[in-house]
Design a protein around this nucleic acid. Structure first.
Lengths: 194, 194, 194, 194
DNA sequence: AATGAATGAGGATTCATTCAT
DNA sequence: GATGAATGAATCCTCATTCAT
């Protein structure tokens, strides 16, 4: 059974299992054993590959942000003009791979993790920075000097919608979430709001 | 040494200690012993008064919401007209007793607690409902049929601003937070946005 | 069953159990659980009273040295004149409570512990210092300027005899040990050696 | 990559690494992985060559004794007469290859190992026997019937000096150690002591 | 009312050892 | 010959909770 080159496979399996476990459980109080079992291996192996539970959590968070970043980049690639790009950013944030219940729940927990783990805080600030600068760059052509404040409002709104999904029961409704943010965006850009 | 009528005093001390401990620690992983020590009593007594750690956490959350509700009610009492009442609601949310770092941190953690504890989820939905209905009632005279969507946007924005404070370092800036939300409100009501 | 004032009793029982366990087992690789069971309590209680395994080991070592110190002091109390005092020191070192197999074994292990634990090293240096100064004070009247070197030789010899007992099988023979050291002492003081 | 005749090289590297690791660490609580890494190979290979950790430790101890034996034999080869031979024995014991900090530390730990491992105990008894018979053979011509007791005293003293080095900080001072033992020897043989 | 005493049930982590390649 | 992969079996330590006093 033991083969060579298992490391990347095992690591990926553990990261996915970590996110799912945190998402399912709704908190960071998940045991390494639970995660390892989910990933089909022993707790000892999880430690072998990640060193510690904290490191594994941090890697999982990084993974989530990487996925998010990729999704945003991909969405931006196909968008022309600031209006379309803003929409792309919003849609990417609520895209199917980010807006799953487990991902939202995991995300929420990573957020609280940032209060204790400097590494987690740093990751979160990176995400925040990217989101703000993406919004800002595309709002500027539309609203000029009001762009910084508008970007701040939209960013906070996105986070708020995400957060509130965390306590909703049932499946997330991406369409509604996107619509909510886009209508706020319309307010900002002076188009007919709804 | 045992005194009469200590119960309410002890309970209040424990609730305050719980919130502070969670806030300081930045997570729900606080031990009953830590909280009890903070409140100047033994862990056994904490159990005596609250039955279990979970119940104590729930009571603390209820306490936070009670304080918040009181603050909102008081702010509304002195406000005339929908515009002023909306401002009062916003200001109350970022008032000094709610927007302290520990309270924000505790709040954030209660939010994640809602994923596991039905009781916590219920409390959170009550808060949400109140916020929405308060916003809605006062937006209706200003924006008519657009009120429900606008209320939803403002509510999500408030939560987002709160959330983002959680990862900021340093003291919260209530004035800035209030300004951010009020400017979104201005967008909604068609006043000159800024 | 739970009574007040158990702490000193429990601590004493744990210290004794620690020494015996190390002695029996012949190494520091004894589990807290084994020690606690020996002392008739749960491992958790052992941690409650000593904080950590290392602290417990250190306390046990301190205990051994305290016993040794008391035995020496008592022996010195009844001895008149340098010759008698030297004999008292030697006899105390190989007295029944110090020269038991478990105590010798524990002692030997504490010795190696000193390589890693600064606390243990400090304790050992205190013991060494006391032994040397005791020997020195009483050798000076007998051998004058040669006292420092003689004290060093006798001290090393005492430790050596102890050490060698550690690998002997069977019961220690205090009489023989004492005789060995006293004959070396006779060599030093110029009496007819044997 | 696998070469022929690697076995003796690998084994020797592991033995040296074992002694150094124990010496550095100051205890037997060294992991096979640490030792193997020090020797530049995988833990699995260490097991391949020695079967088990205990066997590896035992082999390392044997190695130390072999080195010691060789050093003694070499020293004896160049010594004429009992007086010179006694000095040679003492000098060999505190020679540079035996009296290094790591070796002393390892030696001390092997000593405690003897309490648990019959194999280690046997090795130690062999060492003891050789030392005693070497001393005895050369003391007899000098002190006659007092030789057995004298040999015992000198042997214990040598072990004691070694032991005490274990808790000294800083480099061992072979000259001083030798001098200490030789002066005791002078006491025994009736030469002018110092 | 209040607490010291006590523990059972975990949980993270380590490590010697095995095995397929 | 050599190793990466893998794990079972500990081990220390923590903590909510109970209970007699």
């Amino acid at each position: 059974m033991p083969k060579l080159g298992m490391e990347p496979i095992r690591r990926a399996a553990l990261l996915k299992a970590t996110i799912d476990a945190i998402g399912d459980h709704g908190s960071l109080e998940v045991t390494v054993a639970q995660i390892a079992r989910r990933a089909g291996m022993s707790p000892a192996l999880a430690h072998h590959y990640f060193g510690s539970k904290d490191d594994m959590f941090l890697a999982a968070m990084r993974h989530v942000l990487t996925l998010y970043g990729a999704e945003v980049r991909m969405a931006l690639a196909g968008a022309e003009g600031p209006r379309a790009r803003l929409e792309a950013i919003v849609r990417a944030g609520f895209g199917p791979s980010n807006f799953r219940p487990e991902a939202v729940s995991a995300w929420l927990n990573f957020w609280t993790m940032a209060r204790q783990s400097p590494g987690a805080a740093r990751l979160l600030r990176i995400y925040e920075g990217r989101l703000r600068s993406n919004l800002l760059a595309n709002l500027r052509p539309l609203v000029g000097a009001r762009a910084p404040a508008a970007a701040e409002r939209i960013a906070a709104l996105i986070d708020g919608v995400y957060l509130r999904q965390g306590i909703r029961t049932g499946e997330p409704d991406p369409a509604q979430a996107v619509h909510l943010v886009l209508s706020a965006l319309a307010n900002e850009t002076g188009e007919t709001p709804q």
